[in-house]
Design a protein around this nucleic acid. Structure first.
Length: 585
RNA sequence: GGAUCCUUAGCUCAGUUGGAUAGAGCAACCGCCUUCUAAGCGGUCGGUCACAGGUUCGAGCCCUGUAGGAUCCGCCA
């Protein structure tokens, strides 16, 4: 199925070439959707921009372009308005035909990327010795969404979690495991059934109260890095324990199963080469015993170039070294065409530095795209970084459980008010899907780069740009299918658009491909949220004004197809956001 | 001292390569359920796009400066 925008673009370009010569064959026609329906559906703004080079007035240019346009199969005759806008209004038959081919496509007529790229998508990088907290919410939700979008568009996606699995906090857990479960059998059992949070709390307690334990923990780190077999065994147990705990939360959040964990331990063998290769490029400088690369455009208080330390004076490596090793691995071993880094905006300096060093070392080929997608902080309602009462980061589990509990209360109240009775399993499922969906949607629906204020009341609002509103729109469509006992998939699409609200909905349905391209390019999930919110609104208007099941044929079938396309678009869109739909709620 | 991001309606936010009259939601107020779930729809109210210059046929968007806010800055990640 052809994209209307691209199709029209090509035709305006052809008209440009016809009017002003072959040089204009590839000229950007500045074709965009109109922001006001009275100007039609699309407008070309190119005439104004050509006024100066062609030394003519824009309206005359627009007229010349219009004379060469061949668009009668798609649009009404184009009109010229204002200073020189060329306006296009799509023909009804064209819209109907587009809807029919969309209906017959199992991916709603959305084309796959050509050529597909190998894309690495970042997932959260927690220190896995600790329980997941609110700081991991955004990278999980955003990473999952970006991965699903580029995957749907046909790219080969590798999901990577750059976990912290080698540092000091591990010494504490290893020492605790060895102390509390000296018997290997018991240790194995504890790591397959225990809770990471409990483990961490108890280990921390021991660490704070006992000097001997503290020393044991330090020794454990040293032994671990020296490759001591027993300690390595204990370390593996702790990693397993973490993985299980993390998976539980990821499952609750519907985060992909196929994430690859590559942490500090994974990159250990590659760290020395980072230093030796940097040395070869001549970028490496020794300063106060540390190996550094002096940066361009980053200065200290005295205006001197700032170093990026890649090897500490004690010979140890740090996060810059690991990030450089990871970048190299992704390019050389994974053969990535595009690497999507998504971290909190506080690390943008750090990544700008990493990218600079990698580029200056010529480690990044021309055709590899390093996409940096920073995100803002999660704030509490006081406008400050979200913290628990005790000042610690809020555990993610608590945050999500609270959202589910609040949703459950809402659902129960509504059921009582409507005198409906539903099973406990039904209520719990709705509470989970709506509650988790609301948390994710609240995060994704805002511009990624800005900080956002976490508010249960706002995200669980049944009205407005929220997950519940959209999930309800989906439920309404499914209700029509149930009530009318219509199998949407079996419909023979013969479209017949009549009412204004049908046209509005139809035109919106046909623009999902543009939105996904936009998300792929800009890495802004809120564009997709905006699209889905508008789709829900437009469907609700259609639902309000156009009876479906009672309508006479052929209108009835046509409207049923509209319902089906809306349902499938909502379902796909929400899926790409990582949100599950419900049939009833 | 430097770097990055931000400042749009009372509140929370959109605003797509610069395009026609700057948009939503919430809150407030007024309407609409014998008809597919009213968790819905329609309407009213609400703006010096932080400020000042500049570029342009055209600026919320690009450039410069100012004010305010957030985050980060040599051996933590």
């Amino acid at each position: 199925m052809k994209s209307t925008l691209n199709d029209l673009k090509n035709r305006v370009q052809a008209a440009l070439a016809g009017a002003f010569g072959a040089d204009y064959r590839d000229h950007d026609p500045l074709l965009v959707s109109t922001n006001n329906p009275k100007f039609g559906d699309y407008q070309a703004n190119v005439a104004m921009s050509l006024a100066k080079p062609l030394k003519s007035n824009p309206r005359a240019i627009a007229t010349q372009i219009a004379e060469h346009l061949k668009v009668s199969d798609i649009c009404e005759p184009p009109s010229i308005a204002g200073p020189g806008f060329i306006n296009f209004k799509l023909k009804t038959e064209y819209l109907e035909a587009q809807l029919e081919s969309m209906h017959s496509s199992d991916r709603l007529g959305i084309a796959t990327a050509e050529p597909p790229q190998k894309i690495i998508v970042d997932y959260p990088s927690p220190n896995i010795a600790k329980e997941m907290h609110v700081g991991h919410l955004r990278p999980a939700v955003i990473g999952e969404c970006l991965a699903r979008v580029v995957e749907f568009l046909g790219h080969d996606v590798q999901k990577v979690s750059h976990i912290g699995d080698w540092g000091t906090p591990f010494g504490m857990l290893i020492a605790y495991l060895q102390e509390a479960y000296p018997d290997p059998q018991a240790a194995a059992e504890a790591s397959t059934s225990g809770e990471l949070a409990t483990f961490y709390r108890q280990a921390k307690k021991r660490f704070d109260e006992d000097e001997v334990f503290k020393e044991n923990a330090r020794q454990a780190v040293v032994k671990l890095q020296a490759g001591d077999t027993e300690v390595l065994e204990a370390w593996k147990r702790v990693c397993q324990l973490s993985k299980r705990s993390y998976r539980k939360i990821y499952d609750l959040l519907s985060i992909s199963q196929d994430i690859v964990d590559r942490g500090e331990s994974f990159y250990n063998p590659f760290l020395p080469a980072v230093i030796t290769d940097l040395k070869e490029t001549g970028l490496l400088v020794e300063d106060n015993g540390a190996q550094c690369v002096f940066l361009e455009g980053f200065t200290n208080k005295d205006g001197e170039a700032l170093p990026m330390i890649v090897q500490k004076s004690n010979g140890g490596y740090n996060y810059s070294t690991t990030d450089l090793a990871a970048l190299r691995y992704r390019i050389n071993e994974d053969q990535a065409d595009r690497i999507i880094y998504s971290t909190d905006a506080g690390q943008s300096n750090h990544f700008a530095q990493i990218f600079q060093v990698a580029r200056r070392a010529s480690w990044v080929p021309e055709n590899v795209d390093l996409s940096y997608a920073p995100f803002g902080l999660v704030l509490g309602e006081d406008g400050k970084r979200l913290k628990s009462r005790s000042g610690e980061a809020v555990p993610l589990k608590e945050l999500l459980d609270e959202a589910i509990a609040r949703t459950r209360t809402d659902v129960e109240n509504r059921l009582t008010a409507e005198e409906r009775t539903e099973s406990d399993a039904f209520i719990q499922n709705v509470a989970e899907k709506v509650g988790i969906g609301a948390v994710k949607y609240a995060d994704l629906s805002q511009n990624r780069v800005s900080d956002y204020t976490f508010s249960y009341d706002r995200m669980l609002d049944l009205k407005g740009n929220t997950a519940p509103y959209m999930l309800y729109a989906y439920v309404r469509v499914r209700g029509i299918s149930r009530k009318g006992e219509v199998d949407f998939a079996q419909l023979d699409a013969q479209m017949k658009l009549t009412e204004e609200s049908e046209f509005i909905l139809a035109k919106h349905l046909l623009q999902m491909d543009l939105v996904l391209d936009d998300v792929e390019r800009e890495l802004l999930p809120n564009r997709l949220c905006q699209y889905l919110f508008e789709l829900s609104q437009k469907f609700n208007q259609f639902y309000d004004r156009c009876p479906v099941l009672q309508a006479p044929e052929p209108i009835r079938t046509s409207r049923l197809v509209m319902c089906d396309l809306t349902a499938r678009s909502l379902k796909l869109g929400l899926f790409l956001l990582g949100i599950d739909v419900l049939e009833r709620m």
